[in-house]
Amino acid sequence: MRNTARWAAILGLTATALGTPLAGQALAAPATPNSLYAPSVLVLTVGHGANADTATPQRAVTLNCAPAPSGTHPAAADACAELNIAKGDFSALPASGNVWCTKIWKPVVVTAQGVWQGKRVSYEHTFPNECMKNASQTRVFDF
């Protein structure tokens, strides 16, 4: 009995000295595999011009989709949902409904730079005008 009491006292003092109770360690829940996530953080831009190198920047927002939608994008949750459906492929984003646009050439370029589910993303697309951009890219570039 003396050895058991001595070991109990030593363990109790050790736990107190370390600042962590030994019983708490045994009761800690293991981390679930879903608690970790790959980052999905993007900077989205819209500018007027034929390509990103020569375009005049008009707007830029940030979009963070993991672990929860956030950023300066005005419709972050909708944009993240669309990107999830498209599996991060900007060219596969769903098109809006039937929209009639003029054929006026006033090019608008959109870009996306960052990380989607842990993979580097770099996207650029030029639309003939603002109407065509809005008809082709639902909520992701709607800011």
Score class of each variant (00 low, 15 high):
C131I: 05
P57G: 05
P74D: 07
M132Q: 14
T54Q: 13
T62I: 11
H73S: 01
D78C: 01
A135H: 00
L83P: 05
W105I: 15
A76D: 00
P107C: 14
A50Y: 03
K106M: 03
Q117V: 01
S91H: 07
T72M: 02
K87I: 01
A112Y: 06
A76M: 03
A77G: 00
A76E: 08
P39A: 15
C65P: 03
G114S: 06
G97L: 11
A76L: 06
V121Y: 05
A75F: 12
V41Q: 15
T102K: 11
P94Q: 11
V41T: 15
A86H: 10
V115A: 04
A75D: 14
A68C: 01
P107N: 15
V46E: 04
F127W: 03
N134P: 02
F127P: 00
N34C: 11
V108H: 02
F127M: 01
A52F: 08
K103Y: 05
A75W: 10
V121F: 04
N34Q: 15
D78I: 12
T72V: 00
T54A: 13
S40T: 14
T54I: 09
A38D: 09
G71N: 01
S40K: 08
P74K: 10
K133F: 07
T56C: 05
E130I: 11
S136M: 05
V110Y: 05
P74T: 08
L42C: 02
G114I: 09
A92N: 06
V115F: 04
K106I: 00
Q58I: 05
V108K: 07
L83K: 01
G49V: 10
R59H: 13
T72R: 02
T138H: 07
D78V: 10
W100S: 12
A38K: 07
K119F: 03
N51E: 11
P107F: 13
K103W: 04
D53R: 13
T126S: 04
T126D: 00
G114M: 06
H73R: 08
K103I: 00
T138L: 10
M132R: 11
V43N: 14
T138I: 00
G71E: 01
D53A: 15
K106P: 03
P107S: 15
A79V: 14
V115K: 09
D89L: 12
Y37H: 13
